[in-house]
Amino acid sequence: MTQQYPPQQQYPPPWGQPQGWPAPQGQPNVGWNRSQQAFGQVAWPQQPGGFQQPGGFQQQPWGYQQPAGYPQPGQFNQAPRPRSPLSRIVVLLVVLCGLLLAGVVVANALGGGSSNTTPTPQDTWSPPPPDLNPPDLPSPTTYSEATEWLQKNKVYSQNTTIPTACPNLQPIDATSASESELTAHLQELTSCLVRVWKEPLEAAGFELPRPPATVYSQTIQTACGKFDDLENAVYCGADQRIYYGKALPDVFPANLRSTTFLMEMVLAHEFGHAIQYRTGIGIASAAWEQRQSTQAAANVFSRRLEMQADCFAGMWVHAVAESQGLSSGDLNGLSQIAYTIGDDVLSGKTNIDSGHGLGATRQKWFETGLTGTGRIGQCNTYTVPAGQVR
């Protein structure tokens, strides 16, 4: 049964409907727009009467079950037995042996022995479950405020932690994995993405609910309309969810489809859009984009949004590369993927003026995140000259 997108409060004037890159008539804006050959577009529902603030879309998750909580330890209520003098001596000897053993363990640890006996704080991190009813996205009320959010956003002063360990995430070959395997992998992937981004966003005063993630192998109905392109990946702003088309690797050249961490990089880009919309950057950028009087001027804002998501993807890969065992060759492969999804490479038109950017420029922004210090402000695409997001 198709669930309808519930009407929400409309933006006050002068806000209109953020259109983003125009999709074919009657179709939602999607992550990989096959008609435009453009990767990573944010999807929004098309509704008459102006843009309506997303939030509250209800739908059952696919393939995810919230893990049960840990059982509480029981309490021993048995009264202690009286001890004889001999038993006290035995207990004393046991305690002394225990102290000696503890001293050996400490000495071994200080001397470089195994540290596997004590879990690290990262090993005990527990991810939040996917949020099926996330809070509304922040939205500016004036264009002046929108500019402030784009150029001087509070999140820019924060840092991601490099390295960050995600022990449960393992690379997967998306070309041969089953839908159930992809679904399970996607849950671990969003958990790891939240692990890297949650702390800096909250330190800047923002919320980061974990987006539910869905793998689809046939047409599905979403708050952003029907998704029937299986070679696709989408962040839908209307329900704050991520969708992954099972056949997406087929979009890439055959020699690149098995690139290590390809699927993870694609989803990290889509999660980058989630970061943008949870920090107000997404709606602020869309508002300025739809105010432009020419398509060329609007394209500049679209490219700033997309290349910032490329940079966020590179920053996440940088954070987890060590724990995932990614080699320099693997990272070079991902950099090549960023080049391959440029508008010029996909269209075959040199210097095309479109909404996502040239391959070399997308590669440059991905590498900015991949090789940087982890400071989120390095991905601020809204203060650089337009030529740097060409």
Rank of each mutant, 00 (worst) to 15 (best):
V345E: 15
N133K: 09
A68F: 05
E367K: 11
V194G: 13
T124C: 13
P71E: 11
V104R: 11
N299A: 11
A313F: 14
T124W: 13
P73H: 09
A247V: 07
G111V: 10
Y339T: 08
L326N: 06
A177T: 07
G325S: 06
P211L: 04
I283D: 14
P82T: 11
T373F: 03
G74Q: 10
D229I: 09
Q19V: 15
L92C: 04
T118D: 12
Q170D: 11
A238L: 06
Q36I: 02
G112L: 05
G359P: 00
P45F: 04
T142P: 02
S354N: 06
I172D: 07
Q218S: 12
S115M: 12
P54R: 15
T219E: 13
A68I: 05
G348P: 14
C379V: 08
P129N: 03
P54K: 14
Q363T: 10
A79K: 10
A319L: 01
N380E: 11
Q8D: 15
P82R: 14
L358W: 03
P167M: 06
T279W: 09
Y277D: 02
S347G: 13
Q170N: 13
Q8L: 12
D229F: 02
V320M: 04
L137G: 10
K364T: 14
Q363L: 03
S347D: 10
S35W: 06
K198S: 07
L186K: 12
R88C: 06
Q388Y: 00
W288A: 12
Q218W: 09
A298G: 01
F261A: 06
R83V: 15
D136N: 12
R304I: 04
F57E: 09
A238Q: 12
G329K: 02
T381V: 08
E202P: 00
S327P: 04
Q36Y: 00
R210C: 00
F51M: 14
L267Q: 01
T147Y: 14
S354T: 01
S87G: 12
K152G: 07
